[in-house]
């Protein structure tokens, strides 16, 4: 792969399109981009900031793959122009949790196996985070209703639902002042797990007979 994955050295010229400076605050960092005013937030993230965790599924506000958080509210980034978000706090999947400290939703998605191909996953997680922030949903039926803008063609819905419900339940428990439920250990130690790592955090598999 190496010869094909080198980062871009220079942006392709934008020809006649007039550009302007747009300042965006993304995942706690300030960026100033020189972009055409009609550039969507989604394209600004993916093409100018190399934040490719946010996916483009339809570019028309119909699938939810591009969901990001703006001042804590979830939006379809394909339906928003980057210029409209100057002065807002934008949070993308890359800014939710960190490598060794996943957000509760990220962890729950792993624990509940809430994805197959993974393409809708960043959008699902950002949308679920927005849902939690809104604080409107408490029941399964409400979560279904309020997450119905995020399509998953692999049909991982029942696991997505249980992942969101788990975090919602824990959050509810904390808010109620009760003892925070101890964080469930990942079933298979998925947290420490990395492909190709030689660490022994996962017990070796049964050998063949």
């Amino acid at each position: 792969m190496s010869q094909f994955t080198q980062p871009t050295l220079e942006r392709p010229p934008m020809a006649l399109a007039p550009t302007q400076a747009v300042s965006l605050n993304i995942n706690g960092k300030a960026h100033t981009l020189q972009i055409a005013p009609w550039t969507t937030l989604l394209d600004a993230l993916r093409e100018y900031l190399d934040l490719t965790g946010t996916k483009k599924g339809c570019d028309h506000g119909q699938c939810g793959a591009c969901t990001v958080l703006v001042d804590g509210k979830r939006i379809n980034s394909c339906l928003s122009l980057a210029v409209m978000q100057e002065g807002s706090e934008i949070q993308t999947i890359e800014g939710l949790g960190s490598e060794d400290n996943l957000s509760p939703l990220q962890q729950a998605f792993i624990d509940h196996d809430a994805f197959q191909c993974g393409y809708c996953t960043p959008g699902q997680i950002c949308s679920a985070q927005g849902l939690l922030n809104e604080g409107r949903a408490t029941t399964e039926a409400e979560v279904r209703e309020l997450m119905s803008g995020n399509l998953c063609r692999c049909g991982a819905y029942s696991n997505i639902l249980s992942a969101v419900m788990e975090v919602l339940g824990n959050k509810g428990a904390e808010a109620a002042g009760s003892q925070a439920t101890p964080k469930k250990e990942s079933k298979e130690g998925a947290r420490q797990w990395a492909a190709g790592a030689a660490s022994q955090s996962v017990p070796p598999v049964e050998p063949a007979k």
Binding site: F4, T8, I93, E99, A195
Partner: peptide, 27 residues
């Protein structure tokens, strides 16, 4: 476990075709 590397999926780090960094001179 469904995935060899589920962390990458939930962090948006898994690379799909459209995420491959663009090489200079690409048309």
């Amino acid at each position: 476990m469904n995935h060899l590397d589920p962390q990458r999926h939930v962090r948006g780090e898994s690379q799909y075709l459209d995420d491959v960094p663009t090489q200079q001179g690409t048309l």
